[in-house]
Design a protein around this nucleic acid. Structure first.
Length: 874
DNA sequence: TCAGCTAGGCTTTTT
DNA sequence: GCCTAGCTGA
């Protein structure tokens, strides 16, 4: 496995930075012989002045340029499926192979842990063990923590600070709101948490937030509350996610010498998904990308002027755009001008996180920010067929604010299928039809090829859409996997257990203390907690410390005092064991001795065994870590868990979580006005909201390699009410040449009209074969009297309602049909409590019955809803 | 202290 | 329509 890279000396954290290795020479001695790794051969090849190292072979000219342009800023605009990750990883390999930097001198940032993991793996394939020497490859947040742990004291924290997740943050804010005597009903903590998040995404301290924002919450108390929150975090020795970026930014600004260390260290910076960066991330990157000329150290980055810090707009908050950074570039003599070797990769057409603070502007403005930047477009697509690219390209061309790329492929696909648009009566039929299509592909009826379920995905706009598919697949016995969704670490029992661990490691963690002090029940009710809380707040000490004090007094009742005493004793002992006992053992011990596992063992509810199982899983997953602390850090930053990829299953996920993935066949249900584009995106985002929705549609289509099926329904139940819906305007934006409408090869007139009015999909005609039912026609009639303005939002009544809760002849008949479709009115042949067998889930007991739908607690599979036809009594 | 009820919310989501 | 948080009465 020796390939030359394994020998690269790592840049040790504690050692001074090594000099830049001599130009063109690898930092390691080239392997004498037998180095069969790609990189080793590449280096050998280079030494013999052969044209190009192997790892560069197979790149197209643009990709190759993106890999080889190592000096100066580079922006790679990489369209969907154009080999973006390949460019990033090969570029890193190239930097290492040419000896430009040590692995530890490369900063490579991604957004998600998944992306970081993938990058690491792929670099590993190219370069072998050297990837292990890349401590600065990770997410913005994980690198942020790493920096912050080293310099925590500079921002008033200790290096063992806790990272709070969203849930903790909300509880904390709630306490603060209540402490200020503000009505937490009228001013929900959740909302304020989102506001703070928004400010932090923009890089704003309490002093910097716009006056309007500050006034908007709690009768003008927004600013005070934000400041109070930050204070509280400091006392708790804690950080929220935003702080992981903001604290380093603050610290760098206040300490140019520390910043300079990092500037000198990072010879190459690579950023993935640049279109998703928010302002704070942008500031962070710009700071790290600064270069001070080595010859004149006094010209290094200057501390930020005070007035700039209180400014609000990005330009002002970011003084070095016009200040030291660019000035230093310009002022240095040309030949010794320090180049910023930053390479950002992204796709403006795939920017779909504007709603959480991402600034597409960052990518659109790259050339201005980094003068002399080289912009490379990757437009050759290796993923999809011509029809899919054609459809996606035509759709996205409706957006105005874009840099403009057109994807192409020159591969000829023998079964080049058009994108297919299907109509269904309602969401249930949609799920049924998608299920049928999946089974058809699986069996091989469609093209004599049996398709794996792993190659298929259903991508929805909103997660409530998933349910219908799950229900359907359960009854079909079709394997599926929900990607995203509720996560392991968010489960109640896991959070409780984690709270115990956190408190052992960090006794100042009041949120953890409050969470578990009375779990399991110890008779420490509200009164005791309040006393503790007041005492702690008054003296500014952690609650655990307050408890230690208070058990000496008679402020708490004898019973509670005893209970508290026991809790304190436990934690004292566990803390002592922290250094001596293996962490998995200790963790188990904590859960046992605290009575937490017993609590679930004694719990007779259906989910208790599952929870115990999860706790075991938690302990098992700790084995991979060195210490309890290491594990806690991992959990707070890496909230995802690996799904078992062994099973052949259809993936169901949101369009957002599908970004970066690809599937042979993609199903895109729910293309209806109001759902997709989502009404709220239109209401709150206006034109840019619509464009973001369109990019989302573009992301969806471009996930498909060969087959893309789009669906829309005429009736959908939203918030429990049946609503008649109109086909999405995006359907009209698909080009006729690349799209066909299911069940109807012949014309569907009305295409090519200007403006936005009646959709070509409004006509019953194209679906005459299947949809000539009275119900379908009535739905068409219903739709036609809704009018829309230019935005497609309806004027007058927001949505026409049919069915439940409404009266009128139209509604009634339609309701009748829907009811007839979904459930039989005949009484079920089963009764609650019956023991039944299901071919896929095995044995279970019927928990409840609604019409022909049974809710069954399966012994193995847990609770599922199935149709009665699929089970039999045992 | 807990079951049981009611009111409110309900797009996307990483870290 | 359905889930969850929070309140209330036993």
């Amino acid at each position: 496995m020796s390939n030359g890279f394994d020998d690269i000396p790592f840049f040790d954290e504690e050692e001074p930075a090594p000099r830049k290795p001599a130009e063109g020479r690898a930092p390691a001695s080239a392997p004498a012989a037998g180095g069969l790794g790609i990189a080793a051969r590449a280096m050998a090849a280079r030494d013999q002045a052969r044209p190009a190292p192997d790892y560069l072979a197979g790149l197209n000219p643009e990709q190759r340029e993106a890999v080889e342009t190592l000096d100066g800023p580079v922006l790679v605009l990489a369209g969907a499926g154009t080999g973006k990750t390949r460019v990033l990883t090969t570029r890193i390999a190239h930097i290492l192979a040419t000896g430009r930097a040590f692995p530890s001198q490369i900063l490579a940032v991604t957004f998600t842990n998944k992306a970081a993991r993938e990058m690491k793996e792929r670099i590993g394939l190219l370069v072998g063990g050297a990837v292990e020497g890349m401590p600065w490859l990770g997410t913005f947040h994980s690198i942020g923590v790493k920096i912050l742990r080293r310099h925590a004291e500079m921002v008033g924290l200790r290096s063992d600070f806790t990272i709070l997740d969203t849930d903790d943050v909300i509880r904390l804010i709630k306490q603060i709101i209540q402490a200020e005597g503000i009505d937490d009903k009228r001013w929900p903590a959740k909302q304020f948490a989102q506001m703070i998040d928004g400010w932090k995404n923009k890089g704003l301290d309490p002093s910097q937030i716009p006056e309007g924002d500050a006034r908007a919450f709690a009768n003008g108390k927004g600013r005070e509350l934000y400041a109070a929150y930050q204070n509280r975090l400091k006392t708790l020795n804690a950080c929220d996610f935003g702080d992981l970026l903001l604290h380093p930014i603050r610290m760098f600004r206040a300490n140019p010498d520390i910043l300079k260390d990092y500037n000198d260290r990072f010879r190459y910076i690579l950023v993935d998904e640049y279109q998703d960066t928010n302002t704070a991330q942008y500031m962070w990157l710009r700071l790290l990308a600064q270069r001070s000329p080595p010859s004149s150290p006094q010209r290094g980055p200057k501390p930020y002027p005070e007035e700039a810090r209180s400014a609000v707009s990005k330009d002002e908050v970011w003084p070095d755009r016009a200040g030291s950074f660019e000035a230093s570039l310009r002022s240095a003599p040309q030949d010794e001008a320090p180049k910023v070797n930053i390479c950002c990769v992204g796709d403006d057409d795939q920017s779909i996180y504007g709603w959480r603070g991402a600034e597409v502007d960052n990518i659109l403005r790259f050339e201005k920010d980094f003068p002399g930047a080289k912009v490379i477009k990757l437009e050759r697509n290796y993923r999809s067929t011509e029809h899919i690219l054609g459809a996606a390209g035509h759709l996205i061309a409706h957006n105005e604010g874009r840099l403009g790329k057109t994807l192409f492929t020159d591969r000829v696909d023998p079964d080049n299928e058009k994108v297919v648009v299907h109509a269904a009566w309602d969401s249930e039929e949609e799920a049924r039809a998608v299920g049928e299509e999946i089974e058809r592909l699986q069996r091989g009826d469609a093209d004599d090829k049996k398709h794996a379920l792993n190659d298929m995905a259903i991508l929805v706009r909103a997660s409530f859409q998933m349910r219908e598919f799950e229900d359907r697949f359960v009854t079909l016995g079709l394997n599926y996997r929900v990607v995203g969704g509720p996560r392991f670490y968010e489960r109640l029992e896991i959070r409780d257990a984690m709270a115990y661990f956190r408190l052992v490691c960090q006794p100042a963690d009041d949120l953890a203390f409050e969470r578990i002090v009375n779990t399991p029940k110890r008779g420490l009710g509200d009164t005791t907690i309040r006393t503790l809380h007041d005492y702690a707040r008054a003296r500014d000490v952690p609650m655990l410390a307050a408890a230690v004090d208070l058990i000496e007094t008679d402020e708490v009742k004898p019973k509670a005092r005893k209970a508290l005493f026991d809790v304190i004793q436990h934690f004292r002992r566990w803390s002592e064991l922290l250094e001596t006992t293996p962490h998995t053992e200790l963790a188990e011990q904590i859960l046992e001795e605290s009575g937490y596992t017993d609590m679930w063992k004694n719990d007779k509810s259906a989910e208790a065994p599952g929870r115990l199982e999860n706790l075991k899983e938690l302990i098992r997953s700790m084995e991979a870590f060195e210490s309890l602390r290491g594990f806690l850090e991992h959990v707070s930053l890496v909230m995802d868990t690996e799904q078992n990829a062994d099973m052949d299953a259809v993936s169901i996920m949101t369009l957002h979580s599908a970004k970066g993935l690809e599937f042979e066949t993609v199903f895109l249900p729910g293309w209806e006005e109001g759902l997709f584009p989502h009404q709220r995106a239109l209401d709150e985002g206006g034109r840019s909201g619509l464009e973001e929705e369109r990019r989302l549609a573009y992301v969806g289509i471009t996930r498909a390699k060969r087959r893309c099926h789009i669906w829309f329904v005429s009736n959908r139940r939203i918030h429990g009410l049946w609503q008649s819906t109109m086909p999405s305007r995006f359907l009209d934006e698909l080009p006729v040449t690349h799209v066909e409408v299911a069940e109807s090869e012949q014309s569907y007139g009305g295409y090519g009209r200007g403006g936005y009015g009646q959709s070509r999909f409004d006509k019953a005609d194209p679906f005459a074969n299947t949809y000539s039912t009275p119900g379908w026609k009535r739905a068409q009639a219903n739709k036609s009297d809704a009018t829309r303005d230019n935005w497609g939002t309806r004027s007058g009544h927001a949505v026409e309602r049919i069915g439940y809760g409404e009266s009128g002849p139209k509604a009634k008949t339609i309701e009748g049909e829907l009811v007839a479709k979904s459930t039989t009115t005949e009484p079920s042949k089963f009764t609650v409590g019956d023991r039944v067998f299901h071919i896929k889930f095995g044995n279970g007991n019927i928990a409840s019955i609604e019409g022909n739908k049974l809710t069954i607690n399966f012994d193995r599979a847990g609770e599922k809803r199935v149709l009665d036809g699929f089970v039999e009594r045992v």
